[in-house]
C-alpha cells in the first residue's frame, strides 16, 4: 500500500508520541511502582465490621511496614466511617477501604487518590501526603439517592 511521504512522517511522529506516552507511564508503573489502585484482596462484605482492619476504622500509626500510617475507611450508603481522616504532613499513608453494600467511589479532590470501592474487594493506595491542607473526599460513583451527600475530609496537618 502506498503511503504519501508526509503521511509516513506523520505516522512516525504520532505513533512515536504514543510509544513515548506508554514508555513514561510504563516506567512510572513498573519501575517506580506507580500503579492505579489494583489490590486483589477480597472480603465478605456482609461481615466487614467484624474483620480487621475494618473493625477499627480510622488512622493508625504502624511499625515495620513500608508506610507509616494506615487510613482505614468503611463506605456504606451514604457515608464514610470515619468522617474525618487526619494525617501528619510528609507521612507515607496507605489508604485501605471497602464497601459494605453497593459500589462507591473514594475520590480525594486535588490529589491522585481516586479509587473504586466494590463490595467484596479491598481497595488500597499508598502515597506520601506532602502538602498541608484540607482535602474533600467525595463518593464519585453513583450509589443511590444520597450519593451527592456522601463525603468526608482528609486533613493533612503540620504537627509542629
Amino acid at each position: 500500500m502506498h503511503l504519501h511521504k508526509y503521511e509516513k512522517y506523520w505516522l512516525v511522529f504520532g505513533v512515536g508520541s504514543l510509544i513515548v506516552f506508554l514508555l513514561i507511564t510504563g516506567i512510572m508503573a513498573f519501575h517506580n511502582g506507580s500503579h492505579p489502585p489494583s489490590a486483589k484482596n477480597t472480603i465478605n462484605h456482609e461481615k466487614v465490621d467484624e474483620i480487621a482492619p475494618f473493625n477499627n476504622p480510622g488512622v493508625h500509626k504502624v511499625e515495620g511496614k513500608d508506610w507509616d500510617y494506615e487510613a482505614v475507611v468503611v463506605a456504606s450508603a451514604f457515608y464514610y466511617d470515619p468522617p474525618v481522616l487526619e494525617v501528619p504532613v510528609g507521612a507515607k499513608v496507605k489508604f485501605i477501604a471497602t464497601s459494605k453494600d453497593v459500589v462507591h467511589g473514594f475520590g480525594v479532590a486535588g490529589t491522585n487518590i481516586n479509587m473504586m470501592l466494590e463490595p467484596g474487594y479491598v481497595s488500597e493506595y499508598v502515597t506520601t501526603v506532602n502538602k498541608v491542607g484540607e482535602y474533600l473526599i467525595v463518593c464519585n460513583e453513583y450509589c443511590g439517592a444520597g450519593h451527592a451527600q456522601m463525603h468526608s475530609m482528609l486533613k493533612v496537618v503540620d504537627p509542629k
Binding site: 502506498h2 511521504k5 508526509y6 506523520w10
Partner: peptide, 23 residues
Amino acid sequence: MANKNQTDGDLKGTFYLVMALGV
C-alpha cells in the same frame, strides 16, 4: 490509494496542520 501522479509537495499544508494537531 493516493493519486500516483501527485507530487508529494501537494500536501505540505496538510502536513503542517496534522503536526500542529500532534503537538
